[in-house]
């Protein structure tokens, strides 16, 4: 059966994910070392150790995302995160930075290393370099590849691949995007905050909901329309006579019906996005995808996805996986 890797922003969400059927749960520490450094979210080292005990007692793994890029002079914070992860007994760490990968390989050789999507490794040469130089055992592929491209990559590499199948859809070269930094001065890649809540403001203005990031209005949503996240890549902008979404509509990824093709392409694990979401989201999405991967493994038809209400924009896309224009 394909491995289902599920998000947890809090210990309660971790328990919900495991109870709902996650094979593995990924989470992060409550600081800048992970890409979901949001208020009220994440784990202390003690929370992590307790979460690992809970998951292992039920046959589930815990993977820790330490997937931001250390700032010069602040490396000890990231090094401590690695040490805390190993002490907690986690099953793997998910890393993106070359220096941190080298540090982990040298100082924590027994700690299994996965390559984060933040590393944006999207071709066999890059992946094989990470595998040979740093002993990376699994790579999380960026959300810019078609299923055919994933199959082609898998034919030329020896490490496992993991792909996103549900949740927020980052359409940029992940780990390289600075859009949010221009508006807020905070970096998704070094501070772990894309569109940090401290710089987001909502206001009801007439019949519209205005969303601002760092003082820039990036959406005006009519009262009857679904509200999007305040991210610049899904902003709706006016230029001259035209108004529209420049990069991507506010939609979420749902690749449920592509699971058999992803399995055929050699993908080992399926990832659900959403560490910033509640335990209610985690429980519902994990249950649905556990049923789907079990159906796929047994050769049964996949259940119809019922998760649109949980999605940004309340509509789903298969993203780049099924793009035909290329």
């Amino acid at each position: 059966m394909m491995e289902l890797v599920c998000p947890a922003g809090t210990p309660a969400a971790l328990r919900a994910a495991v109870e709902a059927g996650a094979h593995a749960v990924y989470c992060g520490f409550a600081d800048e070392t992970n890409a979901r450094n949001f208020p009220g979210l994440n784990f202390t080292p003690e929370d992590m150790a307790e979460g690992v005990r809970f998951a292992h007692a039920r046959g589930a793994k815990v993977l820790v995302a330490i997937n931001t890029f250390p700032r010069a002079g602040a490396e000890p914070l990231w090094h401590r995160a690695l040490a805390h992860a190993e002490a907690a007994g986690v099953d793997a760490v998910i890393l993106a930075d070359l220096g941190l990968l080298a540090h982990a390989a040298e100082h924590h050789p027994g700690l299994r290393r996965h390559l984060s999507v933040q590393a944006a490794a999207a071709n066999p040469d890059a992946i094989n370099l990470y595998a040979s130089a740093f002993g990376v055992r699994r790579v999380v592929l960026p959300r810019v590849l078609t299923v055919e491209e994933i199959a082609a990559i898998n034919r030329e590499i020896d490490v496992e691949t993991e792909v996103f199948v549900f949740g927020g859809l980052c359409v940029m070269a992940e780990g390289r995007c600075s859009l949010s930094s221009y508006a807020t001065g905070k970096s998704p890649n070094m501070n772990g905050v894309c569109s940090p809540a401290s710089h987001v403001a909502y206001a009801e203005e007439g019949n519209d909901l205005a969303a601002r990031l760092g003082g820039f209005t990036i959406h005006r949503t009519a009262r009857t329309a679904p509200a999007p996240y305040p991210t610049l890549c899904k902003g709706c902008f006016t230029s001259g006579p035209q108004t529209g979404h420049i990069f991507e509509d506010p939609v979420s990824l749902d690749a449920t019906h592509l699971i058999p093709r992803l399995a055929g392409a050699g993908v080992r694990a399926l990832k659900i996005e959403g560490r910033q979401r509640s335990r209610a989201y985690v429980a519902q999405v994990v249950r649905a995808f556990r049923a789907a991967v079990e159906a796929q493994a047994a050769g049964r038809p996949l259940p119809e996805s019922q998760l649109a209400r949980l999605a940004e924009g309340q509509k789903a896309t298969t993203g780049a996986y099924a793009k035909t224009w290329r």
Binding site: A16, A201, Y202, A203, A225, R277, S278, A280, E312
Partner: peptide, 21 residues
């Protein structure tokens, strides 16, 4: 834990103003 806060925001059942963080 019966409903997700972000989903309630998407569907406009919940509205937020002021200190978002």
């Amino acid at each position: 834990g019966a409903e997700d806060g972000d989903a309630l925001f998407f569907s406009r059942d919940l509205a937020v103003e002021g200190d978002t963080a």
